[in-house]
Design a binder for these strands. Structure first.
Lengths: 156, 156
DNA sequence: TTAAAAATCACCCTAAAGTATGAGCCGGGT
DNA sequence: ACCCGGCTCATACTTTAGGGTGATTTTTAA
């Protein structure tokens, strides 16, 4: 066990140390506790609370470097003239991320069911999104939505 | 304390319940432990381990579940500044004039009925044209047809 | 802590789209 | 004259899309 690995797993060793210290502390308390008959509930409760907190802290420490990736789309550009995504229009129309995503797939000619499968969602969910999209774009059909979205440079 | 808040903080209450159950369990164990003199270390250790795990679980529950990473691969195709009508492709696909006309209107987001009215034709006729178009373009839906037609520079 | 917005899903119903088949009309070739 | 392709339309049927409503959960913002 090298010093390096000890440093690397600092949290774990810190936890071990804390545990040891607490156990010693409790061992000392034990004699006092014996004076109070039937106080085991308090004793157990104290340990429970302490170690619950310790566990939470440990969990937090160990899961700290979590990759909070919120990458939504990755586009592979083959070749294109310059397309400038119209954020302003999206904001004005109050289109959410999901809605934009669905709209994009619509533009690719996918059916609602296909979109649902692609996004691991229910068909009903896609229908709901579709309806909202149509409402916001003030159109009736998906073809019109795609047309308008293209004109507004919301989708490619 | 309303039922609503109880539901909202389900994790917390679940933790409370677990704690209660475990304490009861330990209370029962207590009598067995008493048989073994000087086994408090084991007792405390067991509680410590149990509640450490519980704490970690709780922490995991309470921390925000990481937003799932959705990666969409989207191919973007060529789209030149000025539109050059692709006669060759139309010929290759054996698309008739009418079919091309209908396809164009489809691309404008019109419904079959609207196309029918526009061209002074029956709805059934448009449906027939549509079917033929889909067959020739090897697609299933109008949105796909429009997509493909655009890619091939058959329509604007 | 609360409120609002976003996201998810369900159910029901209507409208539109799409499939399959058959048929009549018309104009240009051979 | 006859055939063929394009165009037109119909009937019947299946599938998909869309509208409306309501509910739950998650996320975000105030």
């Amino acid at each position: 066990m090298t010093l390096k690995s000890l440093v690397r797993n600092r949290s774990v060793f810190l936890y071990g140390a804390s545990l040891a210290v607490l156990l010693m502390f409790l061992k000392v308390l034990e004699w006092r506790m014996l004076l109070i008959s039937h106080a085991y509930e308090l004793y157990a409760g104290a340990i429970a609370i302490l170690f619950t907190g310790l566990g939470m802290w440990l969990a937090h420490k160990l899961t700290h470097p979590r990759p909070k990736t919120v990458i939504i789309e990755k586009e592979i550009f083959v070749k294109t003239d310059y397309f400038v995504f119209n954020h302003a229009e999206v904001a004005r129309l109050r289109l959410s991320n999901r809605e934009l995503e669905v709209l994009q797939l619509m533009g690719d000619g996918l059916s609602n069911l296909q979109i649902a499968d692609r996004l691991f969602l229910s068909l009903n969910t896609i229908k709901t999104h579709s309806s909202k999209i149509f409402g916001k774009l003030e159109v009736q059909r998906r073809t019109q939505a795609v047309e308008k979205a293209r004109k507004l440079s919301i989708i490619l």
